[in-house]
Amino acid sequence: MGREERGWRVRGWATVVSAAALVAAAAAGAVLPLQDGRDGDGGPRAGTTATGAPAAAPGKASADDDCGGHPEASLRPSSASGPAVERIRKRGKLVIGVDQNGYRWSYRDPVSRKIVGFDIDLAKAIAKDILGSEDAILYKTVPTAKRFDAVNNRDVDLLVRTVSITCERIKEKHIAFSTAYFKAGQQLLVPRQGSAVKGFDASVKGKRICVAEGSTAQAELDKEKDRLRPRVLLVANQLDCLVMLQLGEADAVFTDNALAAGQAAQDPAVRLVGRPVTTEYYGVAMNEQDTDLVRRVNKVLEDYRSGGPDSHWMQAYRTWLEADLPGIEGPPEPLYKD
Protein backbone atom coordinates (compact mmCIF):
# COMPACT_ATOMS: atom_id res chain seq x y z
CA MET A 1 0.00 0.00 0.00
CA GLY A 2 2.40 2.56 -1.16
CA ARG A 3 1.97 6.10 -2.20
CA GLU A 4 1.02 5.06 -5.69
CA GLU A 5 -1.99 3.53 -4.16
CA ARG A 6 -3.15 6.75 -2.57
CA GLY A 7 -2.61 8.67 -5.72
CA TRP A 8 -5.27 6.74 -7.54
CA ARG A 9 -2.80 5.78 -10.13
CA VAL A 10 -4.36 2.75 -11.59
CA ARG A 11 -2.36 0.35 -13.56
CA GLY A 12 -3.41 -0.83 -16.97
CA TRP A 13 -6.16 -2.98 -15.64
CA ALA A 14 -6.53 -5.24 -18.59
CA THR A 15 -3.65 -7.23 -17.13
CA VAL A 16 -5.39 -10.25 -15.79
CA VAL A 17 -4.25 -11.91 -12.65
CA SER A 18 -0.94 -13.04 -13.85
CA ALA A 19 2.03 -14.97 -12.77
CA ALA A 20 3.97 -11.75 -12.66
CA ALA A 21 1.54 -10.41 -10.14
CA LEU A 22 1.89 -13.53 -8.06
CA VAL A 23 5.61 -13.19 -8.00
CA ALA A 24 5.49 -9.52 -7.13
CA ALA A 25 3.05 -10.27 -4.39
CA ALA A 26 5.06 -13.06 -2.93
CA ALA A 27 8.02 -10.78 -2.83
CA ALA A 28 6.39 -7.62 -1.56
CA GLY A 29 3.22 -8.78 0.15
CA ALA A 30 5.08 -10.68 2.78
CA VAL A 31 7.27 -7.78 3.76
CA LEU A 32 4.76 -4.97 3.67
CA PRO A 33 2.68 -4.72 6.77
CA LEU A 34 -0.92 -4.33 5.79
CA GLN A 35 -1.99 -1.52 7.99
CA ASP A 36 0.95 0.53 6.92
CA GLY A 37 -0.71 2.61 4.30
CA ARG A 38 1.52 5.59 4.57
CA ASP A 39 5.16 4.97 4.50
CA GLY A 40 5.90 2.46 1.84
CA ASP A 41 7.13 4.17 -1.24
CA GLY A 42 6.48 2.80 -4.65
CA GLY A 43 5.21 -0.47 -3.28
CA PRO A 44 3.07 -2.68 -5.45
CA ARG A 45 -0.66 -2.17 -5.65
CA ALA A 46 -2.64 -3.78 -2.95
CA GLY A 47 -4.61 -5.85 -5.39
CA THR A 48 -1.55 -7.29 -6.94
CA THR A 49 0.14 -7.74 -3.65
CA ALA A 50 -2.73 -9.49 -2.13
CA THR A 51 -3.13 -12.06 -4.81
CA GLY A 52 -0.11 -13.73 -3.50
CA ALA A 53 -0.73 -13.35 0.16
CA PRO A 54 -2.98 -16.34 0.67
CA ALA A 55 -0.76 -18.38 -1.59
CA ALA A 56 2.24 -17.43 0.46
CA ALA A 57 0.22 -18.41 3.54
CA PRO A 58 2.52 -16.81 6.06
CA GLY A 59 0.62 -18.43 8.89
CA LYS A 60 -2.78 -19.95 9.24
CA ALA A 61 -3.54 -18.24 12.56
CA SER A 62 -2.96 -14.76 11.29
CA ALA A 63 -4.93 -15.60 8.19
CA ASP A 64 -7.88 -16.44 10.36
CA ASP A 65 -7.55 -13.28 12.38
CA ASP A 66 -7.30 -10.82 9.53
CA CYS A 67 -8.66 -12.79 6.61
CA GLY A 68 -5.19 -13.39 5.31
CA GLY A 69 -4.65 -9.68 5.33
CA HIS A 70 -6.87 -9.28 2.32
CA PRO A 71 -10.53 -9.49 3.06
CA GLU A 72 -11.21 -8.33 -0.48
CA ALA A 73 -10.00 -11.65 -1.84
CA SER A 74 -13.02 -13.57 -3.07
CA LEU A 75 -14.00 -16.86 -4.73
CA ARG A 76 -13.02 -17.54 -8.30
CA PRO A 77 -15.67 -16.63 -10.86
CA SER A 78 -17.94 -19.26 -12.31
CA SER A 79 -21.18 -19.13 -14.24
CA ALA A 80 -22.31 -22.53 -12.94
CA SER A 81 -25.67 -22.46 -11.26
CA GLY A 82 -26.07 -23.61 -7.68
CA PRO A 83 -28.91 -23.51 -5.18
CA ALA A 84 -28.77 -19.75 -4.70
CA VAL A 85 -28.81 -18.93 -8.39
CA GLU A 86 -31.60 -21.47 -8.90
CA ARG A 87 -33.58 -19.83 -6.10
CA ILE A 88 -33.32 -16.49 -7.86
CA ARG A 89 -34.21 -17.99 -11.22
CA LYS A 90 -37.25 -19.68 -9.76
CA ARG A 91 -38.41 -16.42 -8.28
CA GLY A 92 -37.74 -14.56 -11.48
CA LYS A 93 -36.54 -11.53 -9.55
CA LEU A 94 -33.26 -10.54 -8.05
CA VAL A 95 -33.85 -8.99 -4.64
CA ILE A 96 -31.19 -6.45 -3.86
CA GLY A 97 -30.69 -4.30 -0.80
CA VAL A 98 -29.91 -0.70 -1.70
CA ASP A 99 -29.22 2.60 -0.04
CA GLN A 100 -31.26 5.73 -0.72
CA ASN A 101 -28.86 8.33 0.57
CA GLY A 102 -25.69 7.57 -1.35
CA TYR A 103 -25.83 10.41 -3.78
CA ARG A 104 -24.55 9.31 -7.21
CA TRP A 105 -24.10 5.76 -5.86
CA SER A 106 -27.58 4.74 -4.95
CA TYR A 107 -30.22 7.35 -4.38
CA ARG A 108 -33.75 8.20 -5.23
CA ASP A 109 -34.16 10.39 -8.27
CA PRO A 110 -36.53 13.15 -7.17
CA VAL A 111 -38.42 13.19 -10.44
CA SER A 112 -38.79 9.52 -11.32
CA ARG A 113 -38.66 8.46 -7.63
CA LYS A 114 -36.61 5.50 -8.86
CA ILE A 115 -33.37 4.49 -7.29
CA VAL A 116 -30.40 5.17 -9.55
CA GLY A 117 -26.63 5.45 -9.35
CA PHE A 118 -23.31 3.66 -9.86
CA ASP A 119 -24.28 0.78 -7.56
CA ILE A 120 -27.60 0.37 -9.31
CA ASP A 121 -25.94 0.02 -12.72
CA LEU A 122 -23.92 -2.87 -11.34
CA ALA A 123 -27.02 -4.44 -9.82
CA LYS A 124 -28.71 -4.27 -13.22
CA ALA A 125 -25.78 -6.02 -14.85
CA ILE A 126 -26.05 -8.83 -12.30
CA ALA A 127 -29.79 -9.18 -12.90
CA LYS A 128 -29.27 -9.22 -16.62
CA ASP A 129 -26.71 -12.01 -16.37
CA ILE A 130 -28.75 -14.24 -14.07
CA LEU A 131 -32.28 -13.48 -15.26
CA GLY A 132 -31.78 -12.04 -18.70
CA SER A 133 -33.34 -8.70 -17.89
CA GLU A 134 -31.93 -5.76 -16.06
CA ASP A 135 -35.42 -4.85 -14.88
CA ALA A 136 -35.94 -8.16 -13.08
CA ILE A 137 -34.94 -6.50 -9.81
CA LEU A 138 -36.83 -5.96 -6.60
CA TYR A 139 -35.18 -3.08 -4.80
CA LYS A 140 -35.29 -3.22 -1.04
CA THR A 141 -34.26 -0.10 0.76
CA VAL A 142 -32.81 -1.83 3.78
CA PRO A 143 -31.87 0.41 6.68
CA THR A 144 -28.14 0.63 7.30
CA ALA A 145 -28.40 -1.02 10.70
CA LYS A 146 -30.37 -3.97 9.32
CA ARG A 147 -28.52 -4.56 6.07
CA PHE A 148 -26.50 -7.60 7.18
CA ASP A 149 -29.48 -9.14 8.92
CA ALA A 150 -31.32 -8.84 5.64
CA VAL A 151 -28.54 -10.81 3.97
CA ASN A 152 -28.35 -13.43 6.71
CA ASN A 153 -32.13 -13.92 6.72
CA ARG A 154 -32.10 -14.02 2.91
CA ASP A 155 -34.55 -11.11 2.79
CA VAL A 156 -32.27 -9.91 0.05
CA ASP A 157 -30.08 -11.91 -2.30
CA LEU A 158 -27.35 -9.35 -2.22
CA LEU A 159 -26.42 -5.86 -1.11
CA VAL A 160 -25.00 -3.35 -3.53
CA ARG A 161 -24.75 -0.24 -1.42
CA THR A 162 -21.16 0.94 -0.97
CA VAL A 163 -20.45 -1.79 1.55
CA SER A 164 -16.78 -1.80 2.53
CA ILE A 165 -15.21 -5.21 2.59
CA THR A 166 -13.85 -5.82 6.07
CA CYS A 167 -12.63 -8.89 7.83
CA GLU A 168 -14.96 -8.25 10.73
CA ARG A 169 -17.94 -8.44 8.42
CA ILE A 170 -16.72 -11.67 6.91
CA LYS A 171 -15.90 -13.31 10.23
CA GLU A 172 -18.53 -11.94 12.57
CA LYS A 173 -21.45 -11.04 10.34
CA HIS A 174 -20.93 -14.11 8.13
CA ILE A 175 -21.00 -12.08 4.98
CA ALA A 176 -19.36 -13.20 1.76
CA PHE A 177 -18.14 -10.49 -0.55
CA SER A 178 -17.61 -10.40 -4.26
CA THR A 179 -14.33 -9.15 -5.61
CA ALA A 180 -13.79 -5.46 -5.06
CA TYR A 181 -15.67 -3.29 -7.53
CA PHE A 182 -14.43 0.02 -6.23
CA LYS A 183 -11.44 1.29 -4.34
CA ALA A 184 -12.00 4.13 -1.94
CA GLY A 185 -9.94 5.90 0.69
CA GLN A 186 -10.28 8.51 3.37
CA GLN A 187 -9.81 11.97 1.97
CA LEU A 188 -10.50 15.59 2.84
CA LEU A 189 -13.35 17.65 1.46
CA VAL A 190 -12.97 21.43 1.70
CA PRO A 191 -14.58 24.62 0.40
CA ARG A 192 -13.36 25.32 -3.10
CA GLN A 193 -12.31 28.84 -2.25
CA GLY A 194 -10.05 30.09 0.47
CA SER A 195 -9.49 26.84 2.31
CA ALA A 196 -6.25 26.63 4.25
CA VAL A 197 -6.51 22.84 4.36
CA LYS A 198 -4.42 21.38 1.55
CA GLY A 199 -4.40 17.72 2.47
CA PHE A 200 -4.06 15.34 5.37
CA ASP A 201 -0.89 17.05 6.56
CA ALA A 202 0.33 19.94 8.71
CA SER A 203 -2.24 22.23 7.09
CA VAL A 204 -5.03 20.72 9.22
CA LYS A 205 -3.42 21.94 12.43
CA GLY A 206 -5.97 23.83 14.50
CA LYS A 207 -8.61 23.40 11.79
CA ARG A 208 -12.09 22.09 12.53
CA ILE A 209 -12.27 18.68 10.90
CA CYS A 210 -15.65 16.99 10.79
CA VAL A 211 -15.86 13.20 10.91
CA ALA A 212 -18.72 10.76 11.36
CA GLU A 213 -18.67 8.98 14.67
CA GLY A 214 -17.46 5.39 14.45
CA SER A 215 -16.20 5.83 10.89
CA THR A 216 -12.84 4.75 9.54
CA ALA A 217 -12.09 8.45 9.14
CA GLN A 218 -12.47 8.96 12.87
CA ALA A 219 -10.09 6.10 13.60
CA GLU A 220 -7.55 7.50 11.14
CA LEU A 221 -7.86 10.95 12.58
CA ASP A 222 -7.36 9.57 16.08
CA LYS A 223 -4.10 7.95 15.01
CA GLU A 224 -2.74 11.21 13.68
CA LYS A 225 -4.26 13.51 16.26
CA ASP A 226 -1.12 14.16 18.20
CA ARG A 227 0.92 14.86 15.12
CA LEU A 228 -1.52 16.98 13.13
CA ARG A 229 -3.48 18.55 16.01
CA PRO A 230 -6.79 19.21 14.26
CA ARG A 231 -9.94 20.19 16.14
CA VAL A 232 -12.20 17.20 15.68
CA LEU A 233 -15.96 17.61 15.29
CA LEU A 234 -17.93 14.40 15.66
CA VAL A 235 -21.33 13.93 14.04
CA ALA A 236 -23.69 10.99 13.67
CA ASN A 237 -23.89 10.89 9.89
CA GLN A 238 -21.37 11.85 7.24
CA LEU A 239 -23.92 14.11 5.51
CA ASP A 240 -24.13 16.15 8.73
CA CYS A 241 -20.52 17.08 7.99
CA LEU A 242 -21.52 18.64 4.69
CA VAL A 243 -24.12 20.66 6.57
CA MET A 244 -21.45 21.88 8.96
CA LEU A 245 -19.12 22.68 6.10
CA GLN A 246 -21.83 24.68 4.33
CA LEU A 247 -22.75 26.53 7.50
CA GLY A 248 -19.11 27.41 8.09
CA GLU A 249 -18.97 25.41 11.29
CA ALA A 250 -16.30 23.06 9.97
CA ASP A 251 -13.19 23.76 7.88
CA ALA A 252 -13.02 20.34 6.27
CA VAL A 253 -14.73 16.97 6.16
CA PHE A 254 -12.67 13.82 6.51
CA THR A 255 -14.47 10.87 5.00
CA ASP A 256 -14.47 8.08 2.50
CA ASN A 257 -13.72 9.80 -0.82
CA ALA A 258 -16.45 7.90 -2.66
CA LEU A 259 -19.03 9.31 -0.30
CA ALA A 260 -17.24 12.65 -0.28
CA ALA A 261 -17.62 12.72 -4.05
CA GLY A 262 -21.34 12.29 -3.49
CA GLN A 263 -21.23 15.26 -1.18
CA ALA A 264 -19.27 17.36 -3.63
CA ALA A 265 -21.89 16.51 -6.26
CA GLN A 266 -24.48 18.20 -4.05
CA ASP A 267 -22.47 21.34 -3.62
CA PRO A 268 -20.32 22.74 -6.42
CA ALA A 269 -18.54 24.97 -3.93
CA VAL A 270 -16.65 22.10 -2.27
CA ARG A 271 -13.96 19.74 -3.54
CA LEU A 272 -11.66 16.92 -2.51
CA VAL A 273 -8.05 17.83 -1.69
CA GLY A 274 -4.88 15.88 -1.00
CA ARG A 275 -4.53 12.16 -1.44
CA PRO A 276 -6.58 9.35 0.02
CA VAL A 277 -5.08 8.30 3.32
CA THR A 278 -6.36 4.73 3.49
CA THR A 279 -7.57 2.03 1.14
CA GLU A 280 -10.99 0.44 1.34
CA TYR A 281 -12.77 -1.75 -1.16
CA TYR A 282 -16.43 -1.93 -1.90
CA GLY A 283 -17.91 -5.33 -2.65
CA VAL A 284 -21.27 -6.90 -3.29
CA ALA A 285 -22.33 -8.51 -0.01
CA MET A 286 -24.00 -11.92 0.00
CA ASN A 287 -24.89 -14.74 2.34
CA GLU A 288 -21.76 -16.78 3.06
CA GLN A 289 -23.59 -19.99 2.17
CA ASP A 290 -24.46 -18.73 -1.30
CA THR A 291 -21.04 -19.59 -2.73
CA ASP A 292 -22.46 -20.20 -6.19
CA LEU A 293 -23.92 -16.72 -6.19
CA VAL A 294 -20.62 -15.22 -5.08
CA ARG A 295 -18.84 -16.94 -7.97
CA ARG A 296 -21.59 -15.88 -10.35
CA VAL A 297 -21.37 -12.25 -9.29
CA ASN A 298 -17.59 -12.41 -9.63
CA LYS A 299 -18.11 -13.69 -13.13
CA VAL A 300 -20.41 -10.75 -13.85
CA LEU A 301 -17.79 -8.42 -12.42
CA GLU A 302 -15.12 -9.92 -14.68
CA ASP A 303 -17.29 -9.02 -17.66
CA TYR A 304 -18.30 -5.71 -16.19
CA ARG A 305 -14.69 -4.69 -15.78
CA SER A 306 -13.43 -5.91 -19.13
CA GLY A 307 -13.25 -3.72 -22.17
CA GLY A 308 -10.77 -1.09 -21.12
CA PRO A 309 -12.05 2.46 -21.46
CA ASP A 310 -15.31 1.19 -22.94
CA SER A 311 -16.09 -1.30 -20.22
CA HIS A 312 -19.42 -1.13 -18.45
CA TRP A 313 -17.54 -0.13 -15.37
CA MET A 314 -15.97 2.87 -17.07
CA GLN A 315 -19.27 3.88 -18.60
CA ALA A 316 -20.94 3.85 -15.20
CA TYR A 317 -17.98 5.70 -13.73
CA ARG A 318 -18.24 8.42 -16.32
CA THR A 319 -21.99 8.71 -15.84
CA TRP A 320 -22.08 8.94 -12.07
CA LEU A 321 -18.73 9.64 -10.55
CA GLU A 322 -16.14 11.18 -12.84
CA ALA A 323 -17.28 14.77 -12.39
CA ASP A 324 -16.54 14.71 -8.68
CA LEU A 325 -14.02 11.90 -8.51
CA PRO A 326 -11.87 12.46 -11.57
CA GLY A 327 -8.71 10.66 -12.58
CA ILE A 328 -9.69 7.03 -12.11
CA GLU A 329 -8.58 4.94 -15.06
CA GLY A 330 -10.21 1.67 -14.18
CA PRO A 331 -11.62 -0.61 -11.52
CA PRO A 332 -9.45 -2.33 -8.90
CA GLU A 333 -7.92 -5.63 -9.89
CA PRO A 334 -9.82 -8.64 -8.62
CA LEU A 335 -8.23 -10.79 -6.00
CA TYR A 336 -9.05 -14.45 -5.39
CA LYS A 337 -8.42 -16.61 -2.38
CA ASP A 338 -8.94 -20.03 -3.89
Partner: peptide, 8 residues
Protein backbone atom coordinates in the same frame (compact mmCIF):
# COMPACT_ATOMS: atom_id res chain seq x y z
CA UNK B 1 -32.99 19.30 -6.21
CA UNK B 2 -32.97 15.75 -4.96
CA UNK B 3 -29.88 16.23 -2.82
CA UNK B 4 -29.83 13.92 0.18
CA UNK B 5 -28.12 16.67 2.18
CA UNK B 6 -31.58 18.20 2.44
CA UNK B 7 -32.47 15.40 4.82
CA UNK B 8 -29.38 16.21 6.88
Amino acid sequence: QGFPVGGA
